[in-house]
């Protein structure tokens, strides 16, 4: 049940509500979205993480494994305004260090909210 429900409105909605509130408060905001998964990825495609320029977070794209790296990318996206594609998984040396312990692979799209 949790898998599919994460992809319908409820989960995503809360993240977007938070993102909107940050934006309304005059902060810069980036949205990271899981767009593809392979193997036993921790969160399904459609899962979102919102980050503001004070490093506040709402939602998740991996249940904590790669969020640190995503936040770094989100900061860059907020500054440049250009979207970025990130990939994490066992095939990626760096991602292995960041650690998707489940052995899955995910692609994360990061874009500015603006």
């Amino acid at each position: 049940m949790s898998g599919d429900n994460d992809m319908t409105m409820r989960g995503t909605e809360d993240v977007l509500t938070q993102a909107e509130a940050w934006k309304a408060a005059g902060r810069q905001v980036a949205l990271a979205t899981v767009i593809s998964t392979w193997g036993s990825a921790p969160r399904p495609a459609g899962s979102q993480l919102a980050v503001d320029d004070a490093m506040n977070m709402a939602g998740s794209v991996s249940g904590g494994c790669v969020e640190g790296a995503v936040i770094e990318a989100a900061n860059a996206v907020m500054k440049s305004g250009k979207p970025a594609m990130l990939e994490f998984g066992v095939s990626n040396e760096e991602a292995w260090e960041v650690g998707l312990a489940c052995g899955g692979r995910i692609q994360v799209f990061v874009e500015a909210l603006g």
Binding site: D4, M7, T8, M9, T12, I35, S36, P44, A45
Partner: peptide
């Protein structure tokens, strides 16, 4: 299917994010 995901189309890859009302 209530399933967001990426599709490959002639014009390039698109991510489709589904927003359905609750069941």
């Amino acid at each position: 299917n209530d399933r967001s995901g990426t599709v490959e189309l002639p014009g390039g890859a698109r991510f489709l994010q589904v927003f359905n009302p609750p069941l």
